[in-house]
Simulated assay, not measured.
Amino acid sequence: MIKVLFICLGNICRSPMAEAIFRDLVEKDKLSDKLMVDSAGIGHWHSGEPPHAGTRTMLDKLDISYKDMKARQVHTNDWQDFDYIIAMDDQNISDLREINDGTSGVKIAKLMDFVEDPDDVNVPDPYFTGNFDYTYELVSKGCKELLAYIKKVENI
């Protein structure tokens, strides 16, 4: 089982959106028995909360489930439990490297690293920008490319 963890600042906007979209893509591709997905935040502020209303509205509009998703903070065990830790921006990458020095075999990357010539190299946080449509556009594109990458390198 290949395990993917999406990371953002508080785990209520971008990373749960990515988790839901990626899970939807995995289910549609009939790969649920090969890929597991989760999300977490750098901070603990929203632990236990559902995704932000803006994220829920966007996912509802597209009929993408976020059932039972609750925010949690990233923890050091995640470096052993996951194969891919995918962050939304440069600051998340920096914060992840402060939490763990990277000595485990987990692949850490930004979501937009998987998109050729992306419109933005970081996924802007709609908690601050209010632009959930643009966030969805980037996250959706990134998730599709990430899934294609994983299928190729993991031979699934």
Results as ranks from 00 to 15, higher is better:
D78P: 03
A20T: 15
I86G: 04
H75V: 04
R72G: 01
I42Q: 12
A18G: 09
I108H: 03
Q73S: 05
Y84M: 08
P126R: 10
L25T: 04
E27P: 02
V115W: 04
G142Q: 15
N100K: 00
V4K: 15
K34G: 04
Q80W: 03
S39T: 15
F82T: 01
K107A: 11
L9R: 13
H52C: 05
I21H: 14
R72T: 00
I150P: 06
M58T: 10
K110H: 12
E49H: 11
M1L: 08
I21Y: 15
G142T: 14
Y134M: 04
F6Q: 03
K152P: 08
V121A: 06
F82P: 01
D81F: 00
A20C: 14
N122R: 02
R23G: 02
L111T: 15
F114L: 10
L146A: 14
E49R: 09
M58P: 00
M17W: 02
D33W: 09
K67I: 01
P118I: 09
D29T: 07
C8S: 15
I2W: 04
G10W: 13
I108A: 00
D120E: 07
F22Q: 02
D101C: 04
V121E: 05
I108Y: 03
E137M: 14
V26Y: 13
F22D: 02
D81W: 01
A109V: 11
N92W: 10
N155Y: 05
K151L: 08
T135G: 13
P16S: 04
G130C: 02
N122I: 04
K152F: 10
H44A: 09
A71Y: 07
C143S: 14
P118V: 12
D63M: 03
A87L: 02
R23S: 10
G41K: 05
E49Y: 07
T57F: 07
R97N: 12
C13W: 15
T129V: 01
I12A: 00
G48V: 13
L9E: 12
V153D: 05
N155K: 13
M58Y: 02
N131G: 09
I12Q: 00
E154C: 10
F22I: 02
F114P: 15
D83N: 12
Q73I: 01
K70N: 05
I108P: 00
E98P: 09
N155T: 08
N155I: 07
S65N: 11
N11Q: 08
D68M: 01
G48W: 09
K67L: 01
Y149F: 10
A71M: 08
W79E: 01
V123K: 08
A87W: 00
I86D: 04
K3N: 12
T103Q: 10
A109C: 08
S65E: 08
P124A: 05
F82M: 00
E154A: 11
